[in-house]
Simulated scan of single mutants.
Amino acid sequence: MAPLVSVLAGLAWLAAVSSAADISAEDIGPAAFMWPPERMWSAAADTTPPCGSVAGVGNRTTFPLKNGRLALVAQNESWDAAISISYLPEPKANSDFLNLIDSLREVDRGHTCVPINDPPSSVKSGTNATIQIKYISEFDKPENETFYACADITYVEVSDFKEHIPCFNATEPPDKNKGNGSSSTPTPTAAPSDGKSGGGLSGGAIAGIVIGCVAGLGLLVAAGVLIYRRRQQRLRTLRQQHSSRGVKWDEPHGRDSNSNGSVRMQNLSS
């Protein structure tokens, strides 16, 4: 029963996270930081380096010094993604950032959890930083462009980190008709009249993928528990049938077949 309880608890937690982290498709570019929260997105600046936003550094999110992770959400497939970090108070150019991950080649539509390396030993609790994602995608124009997004953080000791990172993987399979930013050209999509995303998934719709997956897993676990219990019940029944309590005393070797049902006693006088 314990596995089923764990799965249901996980399902409830994911539902709460998905509701709290619901991101409208109109509030982000092709991809975005779901956690830590990124700077305010602007359609007019999302291709402007280094942070794709008209906003500067705002509220910083606490981030653990060890075992840090990033939660990404994407409504369009993206390619050649790279994640970098800057320890400057307000980075102004791509050259202000140090590479963290350049092997995150594709970001599929949906949610992606990305572990990142711990900072160097010179970085202590209280150090500020800005994390940048840079990637290529087709969004509101019929050609590929380079997009940027930034999230501002403050490192803290793991013991002082109290947040729950909504980090999980639930993505749609890549569209085979799309290119990868190299030899083939992606199929153009019509942009809506407001000049924003065309046909992208909202954060709630993407999170629904996760909820469905976990719910399905819960049903499988419940079925497994039911099968296990029935098997154990059959085994107990078989053991009882083969125990001394299961012997049939009305067999000829156990009773006198001509008696009226009582056990025949042997002549004890001999």
Rank of each mutant, 00 (worst) to 15 (best):
193 S>T: 13
180 N>F: 03
122 S>Q: 12
128 N>F: 13
175 D>S: 10
43 A>D: 03
86 S>P: 00
100 L>T: 00
212 G>Q: 04
263 V>I: 15
86 S>I: 00
124 K>P: 07
21 A>R: 15
108 D>L: 15
9 A>N: 11
26 E>P: 08
235 L>P: 12
18 S>V: 01
129 A>T: 01
260 N>H: 11
72 L>D: 01
5 V>T: 15
143 E>T: 11
118 D>I: 00
83 I>L: 00
191 A>H: 04
244 S>H: 03
210 V>M: 13
53 S>T: 06
226 L>T: 02
263 V>K: 13
81 A>P: 04
58 G>D: 06
112 T>I: 07
164 H>C: 07
267 N>H: 01
72 L>M: 10
167 C>S: 11
252 P>G: 14
66 K>N: 10
50 P>D: 09
9 A>G: 12
167 C>M: 12
241 Q>F: 05
130 T>Q: 12
74 A>P: 00
8 L>K: 15
36 P>N: 08
32 A>K: 09
103 S>A: 05
60 R>K: 14
80 D>L: 04
60 R>E: 13
107 V>Q: 11
246 G>M: 11
223 A>N: 07
183 S>E: 15
182 S>F: 15
144 N>P: 10
180 N>D: 06
207 A>N: 11
47 T>R: 10
226 L>K: 09
250 D>Y: 09
194 D>Y: 10
228 Y>P: 05
209 I>H: 04
43 A>W: 08
120 P>W: 01
138 E>C: 10
142 P>K: 02
35 W>C: 03
20 A>H: 03
135 Y>Q: 04
256 D>W: 05
7 V>W: 12
233 Q>K: 05
55 A>I: 00
245 R>Q: 14
53 S>W: 06
171 T>M: 15
133 I>T: 01
52 G>Y: 04
117 N>P: 04
256 D>N: 09
87 Y>K: 02
141 K>L: 14
241 Q>L: 04
202 S>G: 13
23 I>W: 09
192 P>E: 03
248 K>N: 05
40 M>F: 07
213 C>A: 10
11 L>I: 06
109 R>M: 09
41 W>S: 12
82 A>Q: 10
20 A>S: 01
